[in-house]
């Protein structure tokens, strides 16, 4: 049994909230900058040039990359040999978010009751996904998520007979409907299988996976490549003003499912696809 104090967790989550909003992970940054050479339209190139410049300004002048600094989505892989001491883990996570959004000059974008809609003024609560794993470490991923793209995400409960063609249709339809709203070029996270809620969580998790990695499953890897190619033939382009680069990457996660179902979730993320991971 290893002891881990919640002060450590608070400090790290605070730092990760700030880091994520000022500097993109290298896989995302490389693709945003690299898109310029792949784009064919003059306006598309101009937009991509601005996005690259925006990243420079964000880190040089300490201005968040985007004003929607997101709702804090937190994935925690808790080793079963870790003993958490100090305060409640959930309170510690939210305290980290609170401190990060305050000290990092980040926008407070969370309302308490979803219908009465009063801002909680500290960007809490976050959304926490726990997983209990082997070992005595805690792996934390902080992924602040903007809602321009979140609002364009969808879940489909397909039939088994819809097969891989049905999955492709669902992804392409979602990307088309998102169009300019999701701040293209986008990153597409797809969850296939599981149940209604499982595929949604998988699609979010897919967004936190580096685009430098592919699925370890061969036919899924091929599907990722095919979908990226087909999305980039839709013509939406940077900013939705037309062009070749509509998506920077497609990441797919899968899980076994029921004999009667084929759930598919498509979580759309903008080019500001933020995620930072640390192992404590």
């Amino acid at each position: 049994m290893r002891n881990l104090h919640t002060d450590e967790i608070i400090k790290n989550i605070k730092e990760m909230c700030i880091e994520a909003n000022y500097k993109l992970a290298s896989d995302v940054e490389e693709r945003v900058r690299g898109a310029y050479d792949q784009e064919a339209t003059a306006l598309g190139k101009q937009i991509l040039g601005q996005l690259a410049e925006n990243l420079d300004i964000a880190s040089e002048d300490s201005i968040p990359i985007c004003q929607d600094t997101g709702m804090a989505i937190i994935f925690i892989k808790l080793g079963q040999d870790v003993h958490i001491e100090g305060m409640d883990l959930e309170d510690a996570v939210n305290e980290g978010i609170r401190q990060g959004y305050e000290e990092g000059y980040l926008r407070k974008s969370v309302v308490g009751d979803p219908l009465i809609r009063i801002n909680t003024k500290d960007n809490t609560p976050g959304i926490i996904h726990y997983e209990i794993v082997a070992g005595d470490r805690v792996e934390i991923t902080v992924a602040p998520k903007g809602f321009g793209s979140e609002n364009m995400s969808r879940v489909y409960m397909l039939k088994p007979s819809d097969g891989v063609e049905g999955v492709k249709r669902a992804v392409l339809e979602t990307v088309k409907l998102a169009g300019p709203n999701a701040c293209p070029p986008i990153v597409v996270g797809v969850g296939i299988g599981g149940s209604f809620e499982k595929c949604a969580v998988l699609s979010k998790k897919a967004l936190t996976r580096s685009m430098d990695t592919s699925s370890p499953i061969e036919h899924i890897r091929e599907l990722e490549d095919e979908l990226l190619l087909e999305i980039n033939q839709l013509g939406i382009g940077p900013g939705g003003f037309g062009g070749k680069v509509t998506a920077l990457g497609v990441n797919i996660e899968t899980y076994p499912t029921h004999i009667a179902g084929l759930p598919v979730a498509i979580n759309i993320c903008c080019h500001v696809n933020r995620h930072v991971s640390r192992v404590l």
Partner: peptide, 10 residues
């Protein structure tokens, strides 16, 4: 008009 989404620092 549209401004470029995700270029808030610029």
């Amino acid at each position: 008009f549209a401004a470029v989404g995700g270029a808030g620092a610029l």
